[in-house]
Structures are given as C-alpha cells and as structure tokens.
C-alpha cells in the first residue's frame, strides 16, 4: 500500500499509533461533511504542523485527492485521515472541493459521464 509514497514521509514515524497521530481524537470536532470520497486541495500553509498534517498538505498541493486516496498513500486508516483533514479544513489550510450529485444521480451528470467514459 503506497510504499513509495509513505516511505518518503513516514520513515521516522511509521510506528506511530493512530491515537497519537490524531492527538487522542476519535472523531473530528467538526466533520465538515467529510466522507471517504470527499475531495481536498491545499489552500494555504499555516505555521506549525505535525508531520502528518504536512504530509496531507503536501499530497493535496496543486491537485485534489480524496480521503480514501490520502489514507492509502499515508498508510493511515480513513478515520484518522478524516480527523486530520477536518482540522485542516477548519483552519482553512485545506479546502473541500468538488460537488456531489444527488444520490441517484441526475440525467445531465450521467450523460456527461457516459460521453466522458466513451472518450477514454
């Protein structure tokens, strides 16, 4: 799982327990509706950050990534990444981007998806 990606930053902290990474939090203080398929992008870099925060902002710099992808690349459970990301969204360092269609989908979105898939 994302060995190359995680080795670059977890080298020193690969044995760190999830509850340390989240500083004891088991849920975000405010979750901002984050789901495993929420897309995040780095907006700004606040001053002092933990190594995992740095890794998150680095991975989301200039490109949007989902919580699930970040979790895989960082070698952390999704819940841990949700907690870290929610804090960073709270400080404005990360922005939730993209929009989700209504459950069940709308016709225009599915038509565009079909055209897009046929072009691949």
């Amino acid at each position: 799982m994302g060995k190359a990606a995680s080795a670059s930053w977890t080298g020193a902290s690969s044995g760190v327990r999830p509850y340390l990474v989240t500083r004891g939090r088991t849920a975000p203080i405010q979750d901002y509706g984050l789901q495993m398929d929420s897309l995040l992008m780095t907006q700004s870099a606040p001053g002092v950050l933990g190594p995992e925060d740095e890794a998150l902002l680095g991975l989301c710099a200039g490109t949007c990534r989902s919580i699930a992808e970040l979790a895989a690349r960082m070698g952390q459970p999704i819940q841990v990444v949700k907690i870290l990301a929610a804090s960073l969204v709270g400080t404005g360092a990360l922005k939730v981007i993209g929009h989700r269609p209504e459950p069940g989908g709308d016709i225009q979105t599915l038509e565009d998806l079909l055209v897009g898939l046929r072009n691949l």
Binding site: Q43, A45, G58, G98, D112
Partner: peptide, 18 residues
C-alpha cells in the same frame, strides 16, 4: 513553511462514485 501550490479558481469538478 510555504510553497504549496494553491488551487486556481477553475470550475469545481464533479465527484462520482462507482
């Protein structure tokens, strides 16, 4: 720390799940 690329104000992509 600085130097993160920030997002430009392009249209928000639609996120879909299969």
């Amino acid at each position: 720390m600085s130097g993160y690329a920030t997002s430009d104000a392009g249209p928000d992509p639609t996120a879909l799940k299969l």
